[in-house]
Write a protein that binds this DNA or RNA. Sequence first.
DNA 1: TCCTGATACCGTGTTTTCACGGTTGATAAT
DNA 2: ATTATCAACCGTGAAAACACGGTATCAGGA
Lengths: 217, 217
Amino acid sequence: MSEQIKIALADDHNLFRKGMEELIEDFDNMEVLYSVPNGQELINKLSSGKLPDVCLLDINMPELNGFETARKIKEQWPDIKILAVSVYDSEFNIIGMLRAGAGGYILKDAQPDALRKAIEGIYENGFYHSELVTGKILHRLISQPQEVTTTQLNEKQLEFLKLCCSEMTYREIADTMGISHRTIDGFRDQLFEKLNIKSRTGLVMYALKTGIATLDT
Amino acid sequence: MSEQIKIALADDHNLFRKGMEELIEDFDNMEVLYSVPNGQELINKLSSGKLPDVCLLDINMPELNGFETARKIKEQWPDIKILAVSVYDSEFNIIGMLRAGAGGYILKDAQPDALRKAIEGIYENGFYHSELVTGKILHRLISQPQEVTTTQLNEKQLEFLKLCCSEMTYREIADTMGISHRTIDGFRDQLFEKLNIKSRTGLVMYALKTGIATLDT
DNA sequence: TCCTGATACCGTGTTTTCACGGTTGATAAT
DNA sequence: ATTATCAACCGTGAAAACACGGTATCAGGA
């Protein structure tokens, strides 16, 4: 037990954060350097000089969310390791945090032992990937042609949804699909109805949420 | 130890295949149903009626390679689990086999214990992912295109971007932010300029790509 | 003091988006 | 043979989004 792993916490749920502090202090090889309610304050603390080895970041925080915080930390202090802690296990969140610089991702309902392993793994190797993460990500990668999974949308509608996730106007989408822009109006209205959506923005987010379209260009 | 896991082997390297047979027979909870030198013969065997629980497939085989074999097996007998066994650890091979339907991927130089775990994992859960696989794939996913640029945006702009990822109109966004809708026009035009974007859809995707906004609702 | 830049705001006009209510033709169903 | 259904299409008008060119205020600098 040569050295203590120094930890910083950022989570806007105070009760949860305090609980985490207790938990971590109980592990004999780590200590909590400080704990703050949002990303901005974490950045401030880091700027003040005392640097932790590992930061535990919640994703949904006011001021500066987990993604932005992770990116900023990695920009300024690339040696600090980041572990994302979240209630959400969506592929989008997981991949986003990993891309933002997190070395691992665990859920808030994880067992203390899993937390400990994650922190130790990240401290030693820079990363730690639980079954959850690998499962989700493999699933995403493997199920590339995911047409089957989604609700009862036909080929045209799926193509339309994908094209909606671009800066094309409906007219331009119609042109690239080789159909009348009136028909596109039809597709749109149909989807609005079926998916309970009222705007193109809604369509875009639906397409991304369901994986019909992706953000990686 | 209620039931034996029934295994089928397909690999054109006879010596290796025989070795595998020995190895598997030594495990007390599994048995080799049959072993063949290529994918086509495996398909033939399967068609004859005696079905294994798990197929171990080499990738490079004459007649019918691992990819095609896996796909065919999954088409006709979706319940049969597939473990890819290969000397190659390239992302292409790994991802290709997983997409073709394999539930796991191990290297030929793996330890017997790893093989056993892989087979058991695939038999029980339908998948087994070693460190190797997850490492390769995570690497590929994470090191994809990512906007490192992180243009400097102020608080208001960030808040605006987040609100853009909803079905609110700009007027409604202005109301919730407590400023004039004209000012919102300003924010929008400013961001269009700065980020080289031409539409609200573009803003939404930028916000999601950079993690400024998230999709979880 | 004058100048600059940033922020919040406004007016006008065009294009795009969205809502609503249609038509046609092909295909399947009774 | 008739009905139903569906995909593709169209017209009109209102609302929203976007483009462009403004004003007023305030906070530094030179």
